[in-house]
Design a protein around this nucleic acid. Structure first.
Lengths: 200, 200
DNA sequence: GGTTTCTATAGGACATCTCCTATATTGTAC
DNA sequence: GTACAATATAGGAGATGTCCTATAGAAACC
């Protein structure tokens, strides 16, 4: 139900078309919620059928008409109810970890290839965060108190993305370093685990 | 395709029934891949149709017959191919972050309730990790070199779970502390972000 | 004494999301 | 000059996974 309420959330800020929503998702919440274009359009249809959103058709000459959606009162109420309700626990799903779990079947080289590819992906992600953080920083500095308050939520999710990204990268770097040093052993991993858990 | 190959992975270690597989999933890979019972049985049917696994029916008196599955040569080959192939990037899906993103609509108290509930869930998870790590530590100590080598993969995923869990918990604790101190502001979050990214 | 848990399998319905495709025009890149 | 990206919508098919249910006897719990 998160896609449903994420759409309601954006439409409660300002009216948007399905196309606008797709771009907004990609620019602001991609690091914790990605949305397929087809899924957005379908959900808008459902939300409209449920009276959660309404739209105004805006004629265009050379392109299909825009449908400018906005949240209704019912929609905003449903959003607020959902926001305050406990968040469901979402199981992680990490194919790379499945591969590493069974990496005893793999050559050390093949395992290194997997780890390096993942590190590249994380570096790219961290680079994107850096750009995003710089842009947000400037927006915060030039914003009034009201606008600043509205940025707290988005910034909180950004801090989450950056902190977890850094932890993930550190895990990868440590693995690669240990693999190089020949200290990639069960004993070493267990003492790492004990050390991490003892600091509480 | 990860469920498929996780099943192949376990069945390449030792023959198991669907029931055994479910327990094994819950005990060893739950922190990065959970498996629904019905999904396991359906996948076993598919794998058998594809010649990836085969089974021996073991009659039981008071219960349904066990089907003891094992990976075939074809199955192990398919597993090894998949293990060496690049892992697909999996988008995160975090309903809690969706809620926090739009938490401007929520009262500060309601937001704190969400954060505290999440912290409780993470503490519980870290407790489970602690137990698991202690058990693994003892198994490593009493294992021979061969058995130790086979534990490296599982331990690597465990380190991942612990490190990310710690980072996630730290993020939550910082948020709760700042909310208490009244330093829960856009400026503060931006400087947190800049500090985190500057350390590289 | 009744409820829950464990062992063991599996189908039905449903939710959710992704991928591909179609339509139509303009602008940009190589 | 040809292919791709941007604007704008939306259907079809399929992959994947979850929830609920059914069956059935033994054991354990309270």
């Amino acid at each position: 139900m998160s896609l449903r309420h994420a759409i309601l959330g954006f439409l409660s800020i300002r009216p948007m078309s399905g196309y606008d929503l797709k771009r907004t998702f990609d620019q602001s919440v991609r690091h914790f919620w990605s949305a397929d274009q087809a899924a957005i359009y379908r959900m808008l249809g459902d939300l409209e059928a449920d009276g959660m959103v309404e739209y105004e058709r805006i004629a265009q000459e050379t392109r299909p008409d825009r449908k400018l959606f906005r949240a209704t009162g019912t929609g905003r109420d449903a959003l607020d109810m959902w926001l305050a309700a406990p968040a469901p626990a979402v199981p992680r799903r990490e194919p790379l970890l499945v591969k590493l779990f069974f990496s005893g079947r793999l050559s050390p080289e093949a395992t290194l290839v997997l780890l390096r590819a993942e590190l590249d992906a994380v570096e790219a992600e961290m680079g994107a965060f850096k750009t995003y953080v710089e842009a947000m920083g400037e927006r915060v500095e030039s914003a009034d108190a009201n606008a600043r308050a509205s940025m707290v939520g988005p910034l909180v999710t950004l801090v989450n993305g950056v902190q977890l990204g850094l932890a993930y990268r550190a895990w990868l770097q440590r693995l690669l370093r240990d693999a190089n040093d020949g200290t990639f052993t069960a004993e070493n991993l267990v003492s790492q685990l004990r050390a991490a858990l003892e600091t509480q």
